[in-house]
Simulated scan of single mutants.
Amino acid sequence: MTPPLVLDIDGTLTRPDRWGIDPRVFDALREWDAPVVLATGKAFPYPIALCHFAGIPELVVAENGGVVYTGDDVHFNADPETPWAVAEAYEAAGYSLGWGPEDTVNRWRETEIAVESSQPEAPLRKLAADHGLEVVDTGYAFHVKDPAVSKGAGVRTVADHVGIDLEEAVAIGDSENDVSTFAVVGRSFAVSNADAAARDAADEVLEGGHADGTLSVLERVRADR
């Protein structure tokens, strides 16, 4: 029996240069004959678009659990106003979110904000804490979010709605925001480029990085069926 998959995107389905989905992923996802949940820190439209172009059902955990789509209902699990208050205070203190004037990274966010990872971290963390929020470093951005939401909780919501047995599920990720996902599935893998938190939480750390590592797991699981 093919197990359900829970997959991060950045660092997990991407190329080693960190930009762009590895094209081999599209066939692998489309051919997987069990549910695939995309669980990411990206804004909601990004994983929805990836599902669309990969030709798979739209089962999505976005914004680190802040937005969850179960295929028929959208669940918003945090209030966007407080993260944006942090962003405004950060910019008022003379810092930048780092994405330029159009800021397509945050334009469609609904429950959190993301700051480019080269921007000063310490003042951002202080402002977030002052507003009752936390900062999660995904290696791609600093995400200012409600500490009550997580990818793992979002994955449980999807599983409850569509009947996924998470004990049978396999998760693959690369960052501290994947730790909560690893905690709710039966088997978890960190790609070789994963940060320390993900490596410590995973059942296994892979020899391959980025999409190479992910595809190696899919091949192994398929062979074990």
Score class of each variant (00 low, 15 high):
167 E>L: 07
58 E>V: 14
190 A>F: 08
84 W>I: 06
102 E>G: 05
111 T>I: 05
218 L>A: 11
179 V>L: 04
41 G>S: 14
193 N>K: 09
103 D>C: 13
22 D>Q: 07
116 E>H: 15
223 A>W: 03
83 P>G: 12
76 F>Y: 14
44 F>A: 14
218 L>G: 10
161 H>L: 08
157 T>I: 14
112 E>F: 00
68 V>P: 05
202 A>H: 06
66 G>L: 02
39 A>P: 02
110 E>K: 12
200 D>H: 09
187 R>A: 15
219 E>V: 06
187 R>W: 03
215 L>P: 12
40 T>G: 10
175 S>Y: 04
115 V>K: 07
123 P>G: 13
88 E>W: 03
36 V>S: 12
166 L>S: 03
83 P>W: 00
214 T>K: 09
1 M>Q: 04
44 F>W: 11
170 V>Q: 05
61 V>R: 00
76 F>V: 15
217 V>F: 10
117 S>E: 01
132 G>D: 11
159 A>Q: 10
4 P>T: 14
39 A>C: 09
37 V>N: 02
198 A>S: 09
152 G>N: 02
133 L>F: 12
111 T>F: 02
66 G>N: 08
188 S>Q: 00
36 V>G: 12
80 P>I: 13
145 K>E: 01
55 G>M: 05
118 S>Q: 01
125 R>D: 06
159 A>N: 12
133 L>S: 10
51 C>K: 04
5 L>R: 04
11 G>K: 06
107 R>T: 13
222 R>N: 09
185 V>I: 07
195 D>N: 14
222 R>T: 15
175 S>M: 00
111 T>L: 03
73 D>V: 15
23 P>N: 07
48 I>H: 01
205 V>C: 09
108 W>E: 15
51 C>H: 04
114 A>K: 00
102 E>V: 15
28 A>H: 07
97 L>W: 08
137 D>F: 13
59 L>S: 08
75 H>D: 02
112 E>R: 07
84 W>C: 03
177 N>G: 05
100 G>V: 11
54 A>Y: 07
96 S>A: 15
67 V>L: 11
109 R>S: 14
220 R>A: 15
69 Y>L: 01
10 D>T: 07
212 D>S: 13
178 D>L: 03
44 F>P: 06
188 S>M: 00
124 L>V: 13
180 S>W: 00
175 S>C: 00
186 G>Y: 01
183 A>D: 14
198 A>I: 02
26 F>T: 09
99 W>N: 06
19 W>N: 10
93 A>L: 03
53 F>E: 11
217 V>Q: 04
158 V>N: 05
99 W>Q: 03
22 D>A: 15
120 P>T: 12
13 L>V: 11
136 V>C: 12
1 M>E: 08
79 D>K: 08
119 Q>F: 08
80 P>Y: 06
183 A>L: 01
65 G>W: 01
146 D>F: 02
208 G>R: 09
132 G>I: 10
154 G>L: 00
186 G>H: 04
105 V>W: 01
33 D>Y: 02
118 S>N: 07
55 G>C: 11
153 A>L: 11
80 P>F: 02
